[in-house]
Design a binder for these strands. Sequence first.
DNA 1: TGTACATCAGTGAACGCGCGTTCACTGATGTAC
DNA 2: TGTACATCAGTGAACGCGCGTTCACTGATGTAC
Lengths: 220, 220
Amino acid sequence: VRQERSPDVTRRAVTKPRRRVPSRYHHGDLRRALLDAALIVIEEKGLDAVKMSDLARTLRVSVAAPFRHFESRDALLVALAEEGANKMVVDIEAAAARVRDPLEAQRARGVAYVRFAVLEPGYFKLLSKKDILVASDHLRALTTSQEALMEPILGRQHRGRASAALAKKSAGLLAAQALTYGLARMIADGLLGDIDGDDAALLAVELTGVLGEGLLPRDA
Amino acid sequence: VRQERSPDVTRRAVTKPRRRVPSRYHHGDLRRALLDAALIVIEEKGLDAVKMSDLARTLRVSVAAPFRHFESRDALLVALAEEGANKMVVDIEAAAARVRDPLEAQRARGVAYVRFAVLEPGYFKLLSKKDILVASDHLRALTTSQEALMEPILGRQHRGRASAALAKKSAGLLAAQALTYGLARMIADGLLGDIDGDDAALLAVELTGVLGEGLLPRDA
DNA sequence: TGTACATCAGTGAACGCGCGTTCACTGATGTAC
DNA sequence: TGTACATCAGTGAACGCGCGTTCACTGATGTAC
């Protein structure tokens, strides 16, 4: 009994990426297809343009079918956001891992972040919707790092050099984040027109370069 | 005849800010009240929460009444955005005018921008909706400055020192904009939690300070 | 000062559409024997 | 290998609600004479 099932399961797993063509009744992998289609809609027309019925129509499936795979529209978007968050983290850490020096690694993260915003505008837009991020513990974790950086800067009690140094370091980190976040958002919001991933990365490199060296003349 | 009207008009203009209390049939200034109410809703619950019928209910007026003053919901939002854009420009230029040195003036603009984002979160959110900005020539003009900065940076043909210098200057300006835009957006998007205008301004001062001096140690 | 009339800014009821979601159903697939 | 049955993933029709917008109307206000 088990002998028969086991190979079956294996074969299916192996051939998974291949289309199952078939009867058009049972869709190959509707769940996957819904996520993919939604992402494309977000890229092209924004989050609000994602309609369950449109997705169904696009995939030539009845309007009720999507609800076999997602409890609600929100659930679909949250699932998509989680995929996006994973991809983003993987991309960014991969970029950082290629560099030894910690400061350069941080810079590489910033560049990768901007690049991600350009290459995956759908995911990026989705990941900047607060109400969607809040809907999942997994996603919430992504966004709770920045606040800690402010404390040393805003804390009025700069007693001693240690805390002044900490404030300076925090300000540097936050400046770097604000800069990369700002650049990414400017691009995503269309303020810089259409640009490709390479140009975006180049901009990120140049701007973080400015941040490193400073705007003011260095009169030794 | 004219003698009678003239003083009337004058008196009305002078006492305009005062409430006209009255019959509750003719609302004192429904147009103004609608804009104010919409702004509050945006601040508290976001743009999508602005419903014409809710505004009407809040102001104790029938659902049809708002349409006597605005052709459509969109028209109301555009009018509000125009007010916001005016206020923003006034605030920013006033801040810049207080400073002599051009570089410091630019920095003051950045600080004022961040402050505006915090003090007027409703206007700020509204002004970052692309489809609303596009709806008015007046607003479109606000957003078409950045793209020009990219050219010198991205232009592959860095022939001669002049263009290299230009690229450097553009990179500096764009870095400053990205940084302030990023900080403002981080705050508006709630990534930094609740902070007040003074803290926001302090953060902006500190971060632009970092940008001025540079992150890397200055080994003379 | 009083009256007629135009105009403005409300009312209240309803329309209509878009869209998420549900329901009872049915065809296809996999498993047990 | 063939048959019975459970289960899964579809269908198609409809519900229902939220909300922008419209329509014919009416009360209030200002102006002309």
